[in-house]
Design a protein around this nucleic acid. Structure first.
Lengths: 191, 191
DNA sequence: CCATAAGTGGACGAAAAGCTTCCGCTTGCG
DNA sequence: CGCAAGCGGAAGCTTTTCGTCCACTTATGG
């Protein structure tokens, strides 16, 4: 692979991540290409179809998240506050394309290839360790687990342009509300 | 207006509400017509365009909600549990087209006509009374109000087919988690 | 029971929006 | 310097939905 081709590939993934974050998984390929500063032809040579591209974004993000989970875990006094920081990071404006990794891709994991599936598993596992620790330390309710956390996160990161405007404007605020709901002791078990 | 025409109009609104709940605001008009058991022609005579139809649905629901707020308020011992019941009602499967009333329509309220705007205002006001009472009774955190409640509700009712699958399957569960987050005393003020 | 105006369904033509391919030109690299 | 790899983007194709139109049906009042 030629050096310039490599550069372009990276530009494409980056641009795609941005746009998908802004406008959802269905943005026209041409917009992505334009943002990346390349022609559609180039895009299609690298990624045979939209799915391949989306998977690439997912891969990109899922690795970043695994990394962040680790870093926050090391930097925080307790597991619960590490979770809080991770969520804050994930909800930061423009970091929203997580959709791919969180919600879209589990189904596509098979399609996305074993390598991606593995990366995602690794991420979930790390986050799960944090969750269990927070629960053991009595900071997190035990009737909700890592799955709930991820789904809820996905709700806020999935539909950036479909979200009610005030939520889209400050997802972090709502995410904090949601985190409060997961904190122990819970009002009522959710069953 | 002939009696049969009136019947058809109602069938259309009902069908539209169902389908919009299932597939979002952008469902093809033809699907709506088919579900209602009429031809597209009939649909278009009654509602000049999609927006008119959506507004009609919003109107439909916003009135229903205002009613339910009242009923639950009367039936519940305290304001907080009334809120809980209202939310549970709103999150019931198939009741999801609230989207229109909650998120889409505020912007379209002007379009939808003064009558609709008024109905919506009435609903919000009733819910707000409940919220303030719950706060006064010390059951609900005071750094979140009726707006937050509505926005959060909208998150779960807006994108039925875009929602992560597990959330779509049981929105109530996640809504309960969210309600816990709004219960007093809060872990940390959300600012 | 009939006349008629209101109502009806669904085929149809137009248009928009995207996807992908293709090909003549450019450029990194050995 | 030569050429394989890479590039851009116009063009063709498909799919999707819209909204109109009109020949046929049916309530309804007299």
């Amino acid at each position: 692979m030629r050096a310039d081709a490599r550069r372009n590939r990276d530009k494409i993934v980056e641009a795609a991540a941005e746009i998908v974050a802004e406008r959802g998984v269905h943005v026209p390929m041409e917009l992505i290409a334009r943002r990346a500063g390349v022609g559609v032809g180039t895009l299609y040579r690298r990624f045979p179809d939209r799915e391949a591209l989306i998977t690439a974004i997912g891969d990109h993000y899922v690795r970043a998240m695994a990394e962040v989970v680790d870093v926050t875990a090391r930097q925080s006094a307790d597991a619960w506050s590490a979770i809080g920081r991770f969520v804050a990071w994930a909800a930061a404006p423009g970091r929203v394309a997580l959709a791919s990794a969180l919600a879209v891709l589990p189904q596509e994991a098979t399609t996305g290839g074993a390598e991606f599936a593995e990366a995602r598993r690794e991420w979930v596992e790390r986050l799960d360790r944090l969750v269990r620790r927070a629960q053991a330390e009595g900071d997190m309710r035990t009737d909700a687990g890592v799955e709930e956390l991820i789904h809820l996160l996905a709700v806020f990161t999935c539909h950036p342009n479909g979200l009610p405007e005030p939520v889209a404007a400050d997802p972090g605020r709502y995410l904090r509300l949601m985190l409060d709901g997961m904190k122990a002791p819970s009002a009522d078990p959710i069953g």
